[in-house]
């Protein structure tokens, strides 16, 4: 099976029903994407597929063959992703950091779809869990990004 991850082509051997997360982490060794709950509940495993956020722990790898996958490793190659990371640094969002790759992916997907999201949009899109409780910092960073003049 051929996968397109971070603009590179990979040939993977996993069975078609293997969750994408385990292909990325175990077979391809990219460990920035985290395992949290395995049930699409926490968001730690989020990646972008064709610009949309997907929970890789519940995504059968065969369903994303041939589509464009972006993981945290390459998020700064994306213009929106780069701005998100900058805002994260500015607001010093992470504490332990385990959930943060998923948080950054979720924020990037949101802002790629709508440059000026409403509060409902933010609540629906930023549903990732954070054990350290960095929600206030995340909220401040996303609000900053949503209000940026240059954003389109």
């Amino acid at each position: 099976m051929k996968l397109q991850i971070n603009n590179k082509a990979y040939d993977v051997e996993a069975d078609g029903d293997t969750p994408l997360l385990w292909v990325i982490r175990d077979e391809l060794g990219m460990t920035g994407t985290k395992y949290g709950c395995g049930l699409a509940q926490c968001g730690a495993c989020s990646v972008l597929v064709d610009g949309m956020v997907m929970r890789s722990c519940v995504t059968p790898v065969e369903s994303v063959a041939g589509r464009s996958i972006t993981t945290i490793e390459a998020i700064e190659e994306d213009e929106v992703g780069k701005r998100v990371v900058e805002a994260w640094v500015k607001h010093q969002v992470p504490q332990c950091g385990y959930c943060q790759s998923g948080q950054v992916i979720a924020a990037t997907a949101l802002l790629k779809q709508t440059a000026h999201p409403t509060d409902e949009d933010v609540m629906a899109a930023m549903a990732n869990l954070c054990r350290c409780g960095t929600y206030n910092a995340i909220s401040a960073a996303v609000r900053d990004l949503a209000e940026e003049e240059g954003a389109q």
Partner: peptide, 11 residues
């Protein structure tokens, strides 16, 4: 996005 508040359950 932008419409999520309009339909109950959508969010």
């Amino acid at each position: 996005f932008g419409k999520l508040g309009e339909t109950p359950g959508a969010q």
